[in-house]
Design a protein around this nucleic acid. Structure first.
Lengths: 225, 225
DNA sequence: CCGCCCTACCTTGCATGCAATCGCCGAGGA
DNA sequence: TCCTCGGCGATTGCATGCAAGGTAGGGCGG
């Protein structure tokens, strides 16, 4: 059975979700009392949650000045993608070696659904892609059977999610990205770890270009100095 | 000027240092009141410190059952070294491209001092190697100019430090390891990033074999099942 | 008119108190 | 003898109170 979560854990999950969903603008002030009454708890668990979110890098915590939603510079964002480009191909290769038929079916389902939902046209729903994409990459990380690798990834993956959703993609890059998912599953089904690694490398580098371009553009319109 | 640290930060640094120095056995209970009076503060900052240490993976925090010093299985330890084998060569390559003459002199000094102190014989002081080694790798990570990469490394590097110091090395492996440091500096001085990357790869894989062997041996003597 | 300082409010940081939960130990029954 | 159940001590989790530090706004001096 699932043990009852503590208030601090609920606060942590709620806050993380709120930030990851982008409901609060980057740099927004996070007052302890405001969050406390909003979550229906006292300031103590909120403080604990903020502290842990700071450790995760999702909020910036300045002594005596409170917490703000973290912001990332273009350079930091690029660094994150370089790191992903280093780690995720390894994840894909390991997952390719470890995946069973059931896992492959699940991944294939996710990949196909993403391609359906994301295809440019009337039925497109870019926001619905976010959780599916997250599920796909998380599933892969779990399959890799490498907790340290998964932890390192999880600790760094947040920024791109916050900064931009899939709205940043142009049609060509988006189609490439969605096709990559399908191709990764195909490579895994073929048991070809190197194929999977290569496609994942392309996948991340494609995303890097899109995201960095988008971040640079938004930084430009925010303060063109 | 350096701003006065809060009590929670002092508690965090102190506890982390105590754990990293191995002054508490793995799995040791960490009572809030005990730590509080030992640090001369109340339980609140201690709780905050423990929470953040749990996020760093240095302590395991079970709801309603308190905190214990984290333990790592042989598999987890091996995973950490695989991750380091993925990340640190990249760090070395980046650092090789970015290092200036002053940086190289500092690194060379560290490497040479480590070789002097660590050389088998009467003057050997294995415990003194730990902070020097840490300084060397930290300096490299800083030189790489890649905050995300450094953060990912820092978040994962702890276990090997806690599990074993340099006492686990046999003479041959230790000499190799110390020679690697010197060779990395030489490669950087030559501006050869790929050389640095290769030596660092060897360095980590050498360490991996030593540490995993030591961990397996201690696990064997602890509970040979 | 502009800049500086002082004051008052607000926020954070820490201490402490109280309730709930967990683990342990002993007694009772099968 | 072993298992189970109930009470007790200890510990965590959370709420609240108080003091220190910071920020903003207004008044005063240049």
């Amino acid at each position: 059975m699932t043990r009852p979560l503590t208030s601090a854990e609920r606060a942590l999950d709620t806050l993380r979700d709120v930030i990851l969903r982008g409901e609060l603008p980057a740099g927004a002030r996070l007052g302890e009392v405001e969050l406390a009454e909003r979550l229906g708890v006292s300031r103590t668990p909120v403080r604990e949650a903020l502290s842990r979110l700071a450790a995760e890098g999702l909020v910036q915590l300045v002594p005596n000045r409170g917490a703000r939603v973290a912001t990332w510079s273009v350079d930091e964002l690029e660094g994150v993608f370089e790191l992903r480009a280093l780690l995720e191909p390894q994840v894909a290769a390991l997952a390719a070696a470890a995946a069973g038929p059931g896992d492959l079916d699940e991944l294939a389902d996710l990949a196909v659904r993403m391609e359906t939902i994301g295809r440019p046209g009337p039925g497109q729903d870019l926001d619905a892609l976010v959780p599916l994409n997250r599920a796909f990459h998380d599933r892969l990380a779990a399959l890799a059977g490498h907790p340290a690798l998964a932890a390192a990834l999880a600790g760094v993956i947040h920024p791109p999610i916050v900064v931009r959703n899939f709205h940043a993609y142009d049609d060509a890059s988006l189609c490439r990205s969605l096709a990559h998912h399908v191709e990764i599953v195909a490579a895994m089904r073929a048991g070809d770890a190197e194929w999977a690694r290569a496609v994942m490398t392309a996948h991340i580098r494609n995303a890097r270009v899109v995201m960095v371009r988008a971040a640079a553009a938004s930084a430009m319109e925010a303060g063109p100095d």
